[in-house]
Design a protein around this nucleic acid. Sequence first.
DNA 1: TGCATTTGTGTAAGCGCTTACAGCACGGCA
DNA 2: TGCCGTGCTGTAAGCGCTTACACAAATGCA
Lengths: 332, 332
Amino acid sequence: MDVTIYEVAKRAGVSIATVSRALRGTGPVAAKTREKVLKAVEELNFTPSRLGVSLAEGRHAANGIVFPDLAGPYYTEVLLGYEEVASELGRSVVILSTKGRTRVNDLIKDLAGRVDGMLIFGHAVPELLVGELVRLGVRLVFLSRDPLPGADTLRSENTASARALARHLRDHGYERFAFLGAPLTSRDDVDERWRGVRAELGGAIEAVDTGHYTVESGFEAARKLLKGAGRPRAIVCSDDEVALGALLAAEELGLDVPGDVAVTGWDDIMAARHARPALTTVRQPMRELGARAARALDELITGVRDTPNHLTLTTEPVIRASCGHHPQEART
Amino acid sequence: MDVTIYEVAKRAGVSIATVSRALRGTGPVAAKTREKVLKAVEELNFTPSRLGVSLAEGRHAANGIVFPDLAGPYYTEVLLGYEEVASELGRSVVILSTKGRTRVNDLIKDLAGRVDGMLIFGHAVPELLVGELVRLGVRLVFLSRDPLPGADTLRSENTASARALARHLRDHGYERFAFLGAPLTSRDDVDERWRGVRAELGGAIEAVDTGHYTVESGFEAARKLLKGAGRPRAIVCSDDEVALGALLAAEELGLDVPGDVAVTGWDDIMAARHARPALTTVRQPMRELGARAARALDELITGVRDTPNHLTLTTEPVIRASCGHHPQEART
DNA sequence: TGCATTTGTGTAAGCGCTTACAGCACGGCA
DNA sequence: TGCCGTGCTGTAAGCGCTTACACAAATGCA
């Protein structure tokens, strides 16, 4: 990768300006000259240095993406949609995981210096820095976060779906409920889900903090909960991974799902479908979130749009076996 | 992000060289001067332009990673390990998915111009291009691929584990086997697994091509296989996703796993543990593959090492319920 | 006190491109 | 024949940094 435009120019017997014009198609170039240039390019196997191009153009042709942790299907799916569209738009994708990192601020700032804009998951970035980035003029799209000035936000609907899910469970005839998740750690999505079920079920549901959103934390919390005195009839989990943990806990305690206790998740990750009983959940359009984010960013970067956009995508309940037999619904 | 070193220099009343030295700690700078510089940096909120730095330094401080498709836990896990170590080493990670892309060559070349080296999954890149990249002096690490000159290769062990898995199944008393996967599409890993079980089971196992490595293709192939006349007693799948598909097929046909048919996977992805019956599989150290790749690349880039390395990591069988009860083994 | 170091700082030459501007040749037209 | 486009190409000024080199000032030592 170290043949430069100068060598091409020399070989073709023209100036570097002509090489550049011939290659980019800007400005007029005589057919014969173009041919000479292309031939030299071919022979030397020349690829313009991205660094040189970017420096001169003043743009990176790259997008960043910041997530708290790539583990788990949710982030992966979003990333997938994001990268696909970004690539379509001619932009590379630079990733950054903040989990367990010290000096996150520096990492983010470094990233900001490598890209034209970035997608940030929820609260993966300290609040103070968010303001600074906005002030710096970095193009930003936030995922699953309350709208804020100076940046796009993108999310999928939570409250109404949560209410619908809660209603569905109540229609089963269940009366005691628990919500399993970490609603106190400011993941807006989960907070909304909690408020949704709460609004529907009122005092019949209690929240249990799992601390994290992992199979393990779900398992631990569910085990404690199911062993306790007032065992809930149904457990609404903040996401599928927590729910998978709950299923494991029930299994360990010899409880039948959904016979003894119903369980629901959120996201519809792959494992949800393969768990037994298959997990009732709410499908979030994860790839589309990523894809939309990439397009939104493109609009902001190219300047097609300069006012922030705040969009909410709809979700879809997926009723499977883990919530119990329900006459009105089909099963997957 | 558009305050430059010149403005800092002016504000601090020094030259840009001094600013650079003060910030990077190269060369001597008087304490008082350093303070002035830092103050100016602070006030202007200056971050050196990555482009400028890279151009001057002649390095990107970034690594690439190329995968056929990010879908599925295998790639994610590797990516996770890779990004973590790369970040530790001060390198960003630029991703590129080749699935369904036209002009892959251009994408790869563009990527090569953005990074100091890259990790490439198996055969995600056309063979012809591999040679060209090597010739161009791009630092490369290949995953799950036969050793080739001019680049590192990294893989996890397949043949011996496959033989061990096959032996384990035979010890159950099973006699007719099938191998489900797409061994003909040149994924070296899978090819080795097939050869391993084949070496152990000989004519007792037949290969069935699924075309892809997805739950769906596994489902389709397994359904056809299980409906057919000579139904195998055990199905060895090329990876967990195919195996999950096989479990679904068995369920649909009303067959008991492992009572009627045993199923095994490969990789030990999250869903393997949550499937019912839980999937017997072979754990591949996915994160470590990523982490090692990042370190290997670093060695090549920094020049600590200049001869290619070819490493094989060991795998670990994970015996769960899907292969049947087996007195000698514990169950997870 | 004088000289050789050391320390601190600035100047300027890159790094590899893009592009505004200028210049040159050629053809068409009056 | 003279003049004015038009088409093509080259020159050179950036883009934002790093760093070799030169030089001045401060220090150490005899």
